[in-house]
């Protein structure tokens, strides 16, 4: 019988890069085979453990990109080279790359799709942030179409506004997305309207990461194991997608309440 040992294994922080005032990338010493869209659980002993996308990879190394939210992410961002964090994973199902794709990301959701863009550099990447200060990975993806809510850089609109006309022209067969769930819902609805497949990476409060506890459920799916990337067929059946999520207790709340209650 297959029985895997799922425990955090300590990894050394090699380098810490400032992406934006409240966003940092941590390079960790860890060899890992993963698909874009999968995630790892990062453990800080005596504090907590949280899921993060693998945001970049180099031989023998992976990176995570951390946004400042609560005590856990704050501590993670303060890590110095030489310190260690626990890593387990990768978990879940990632993106399934297909021809004629486009990628659309919002905020730190870009971390989740970054390795997909690297694997498929021909795919156009649309990125939305609140303001110029929050635009990350500019050097990494020089062809990225940047939009900001306040117009401080790039186009002053939502990235969906840039995607829409090109979907109307039938340029894409599949759209990959990660970002705030209201944005992903808008992307999905747009794709549905144009008969284009959508693959969205969802986020829910997570515990085990391997499909046992039922904490991260969305519809009858487990975000940790069936997801985090879901295709149109699965998204269509998820009444909660774009509407509600569950707190640590399992209480179902609106996405806004969920975002406010999150303390990672």
């Amino acid at each position: 019988m297959r029985h895997t040992v799922e425990q955090p294994v300590m990894a050394r922080v090699m380098e810490v890069l400032d992406d934006a005032p409240e966003l940092r990338t941590l390079w960790l010493e860890r060899k890992m085979k993963f698909q874009p869209g999968q995630f790892v659980m990062i453990w800080i002993p005596e504090l907590d453990e949280k899921p993060y996308a693998v945001s970049a990879q180099a031989p023998g190394h992976i990176a995570i990109t951390v946004r400042k939210r609560g005590p856990f992410s704050t501590r993670l961002m303060e890590m110095r080279p030489g310190e260690t964090v626990g890593v387990r994973g990768p978990y879940g199902h990632g993106f399934v790359p297909k021809p004629n794709g486009a990628i659309i990301a919002g905020g730190c959701g870009l971390a989740m799709v970054a390795t997909l863009k690297e694997a498929r550099p021909e795919m156009p990447l649309f990125f939305g942030a609140k303001t110029a200060d929050e635009v990350i990975y500019r050097d990494r993806f020089p062809d990225m179409e940047v939009c900001t809510d306040d117009g401080t850089t790039g186009y002053r609109c939502f990235p969906t506004d840039r995607l829409r006309p090109r979907l109307e022209r039938g340029e894409f067969k599949v759209v990959y997305t990660c970002g705030p769930e209201v944005m992903m819902r808008a992307v999905f609805d747009l794709c549905e309207k144009h008969g284009v497949e959508c693959q969205a990476a969802l986020e829910r409060y997570m515990k085990c990461g391997f499909g046992l506890c039922g904490q991260c459920t969305c519809g009858d799916q487990l975000v940790c194991q069936d997801g985090p990337v879901f295709d149109s067929k699965a998204l269509r059946r998820m009444e909660e997608f774009g509407r509600s999520a569950r707190l640590k207790s399992g209480q179902k709340v609106t996405l806004k309440q969920y975002a406010d209650g999150r303390s990672c």
Partner: peptide, 22 residues
Amino acid sequence: PNPTILSFDAGMINAVGYSNPG
């Protein structure tokens, strides 16, 4: 807090702590 559920070579260990919505 997490980690709440891990596995080892002969089973699982958990301290979920009865999380539930009441």
